[in-house]
Amino acid sequence: MANVNAPMAGKLISVDVKVGDTVKKNDPVATLEAMKMQIKVFAPADGKVAEIKAEAGANIDPSVVIMTLE
């Protein structure tokens, strides 16, 4: 089980995977906007998307879990 946290404070633009998708380490899984720059959030480990916990449009920071991988 691995959490995908927001790498920095910003606005979550989109979650680019669905529950059940299989992802590999360093695959892009979400897009964040910080300082008017769009930044891809990459999977920290291999796994399957178990739950998506944050919604697009939300303001997030490193304490926020965007999704969990199993």
């Binding site: 404070a9 930044i39 891809k40």
Partner: peptide
């Protein structure tokens, strides 16, 4: 980020 995708240096 190119060198290491887990690297977020922006802030």
């Amino acid at each position: 980020n190119e060198a290491n995708p887990q690297n977020y240096l922006l802030m």
